[in-house]
Design a protein around this nucleic acid. Sequence first.
DNA 1: GGCACACTTCGGCGGGCGCCGAAGTGTTCG
DNA 2: CGAACACTTCGGCGCCCGCCGAAGTGTGCC
Lengths: 238, 238
Amino acid sequence: MTGRKDAGAAGLAALAGLIADETRAACLLALLDGRAWTASELARHAGVAASTLSEHLGRLVAGGLLTEERQGRHRYVRLAGPQVAQLVEELAAQVEPGVRAARRRTLRASGAAAAMAHGRTCYDHLAGRLGIAVADAFTARGLLRQDTGFALTDAGLRWFDTAGIGLDRTGRRPLVRSCLDWTERRPHLAGVAGAALCRHALDAGWCVRIGSERAVRVTAEGERALSALLGIEAAALR
Amino acid sequence: MTGRKDAGAAGLAALAGLIADETRAACLLALLDGRAWTASELARHAGVAASTLSEHLGRLVAGGLLTEERQGRHRYVRLAGPQVAQLVEELAAQVEPGVRAARRRTLRASGAAAAMAHGRTCYDHLAGRLGIAVADAFTARGLLRQDTGFALTDAGLRWFDTAGIGLDRTGRRPLVRSCLDWTERRPHLAGVAGAALCRHALDAGWCVRIGSERAVRVTAEGERALSALLGIEAAALR
DNA sequence: GGCACACTTCGGCGGGCGCCGAAGTGTTCG
DNA sequence: CGAACACTTCGGCGCCCGCCGAAGTGTGCC
């Protein structure tokens, strides 16, 4: 080692460099809703010209953070997978302590922020107070073990089975993973199980998306289901 | 939302920007050994002038990724905590797929790389084939559950107790966490338990550091202990 | 006290990157 | 077919950032 840099350093810097731009960061955060956005939607969201955003998308796709899907004159992009979502989440969670002051400044300037804190999706699973309530209920009922790590118990596996929520255990993705919540600073349920639960909650009408953002609202039917299946009191969701 | 960027985007970009420089990235990777380095050591390691590195350190400290400790005319820096190590690890793990080709090019150019793949520390816990062997042995003996997440079992807690390795469960840090291994692409044991085990392994002479890098070598005594306590065959460590 | 050493500050240089608007390509729709 | 639209490519501009060497500050050693 004559003083030259590590081979990995260049790769690490390049990957971080993809995120190290405010416009690209805004795109990645927007795409955390797990859906596909068009280039113009992202350009409007980020407040830059279409031509500028086109170049950004090119770099993000080339760097493997996004995948694209062309349909006619539209270019749809989405996060390349759960690993990318996890990466962005983790970076964002690390940022929060510093940004908290700013958030306090804006106070509850927007009702949108309040709705996000209340309940939202985090790529493909539930987050916010709703996500925390679910994770806590799982833990309290002995379905999820959080004291010595983060794993479903056998009772937890049975719960998914009896609830009729199938878990695909064939892939490489972990069955369950903890994901640090931005707003609550506590872990919620991610991984295959978290995604399956979220999908079921949306499909079964337990909660519905608010507007075009990531925020979700629990329906009356959802309150009944969460109370019956997990013992979550409706009050805890408000 | 008139088209202006999210408040979080600026923070995310700023954090990523700290890592998005090859010199700073090389420093962070070097500091993954969990020890404190002086500014000149890092400058030599990264191959830049002392003045250049001084500025980099200033930014990393200001950004909260490093903490510094002045001793006389030396400036010692280290990673600010396990969260930072985790962040860098995760980014680096994401990079690997792309860098693999390059690694294959250099082949086993350096024996140092082979030693690192064999066994090393990853901030404060064990990694490499050694780390994987330990995690696998834990799992095979029913001490660690990896199929439904990643958590110690009650038997696992007892194992630490009888081995005389204390676990501090008072802090905020999770007792156990999975950490994706760069070289093996499989999870190994991190968190409080991983750190305690690594510390014990070094203190008890189960393994020793090779040179000044992160690589470690299992001693004859270590082979006996790992065989007796975890049923790890010495052959699996070579 | 004087010298060696670790680190910091400063000015200056060069390169890279993000931004835009204008022009070009391909798609959809009337 | 022509107009509207989504996206891309290209020049050009300006700024920021990483680099260095030289000079300055503080510490430790003889």
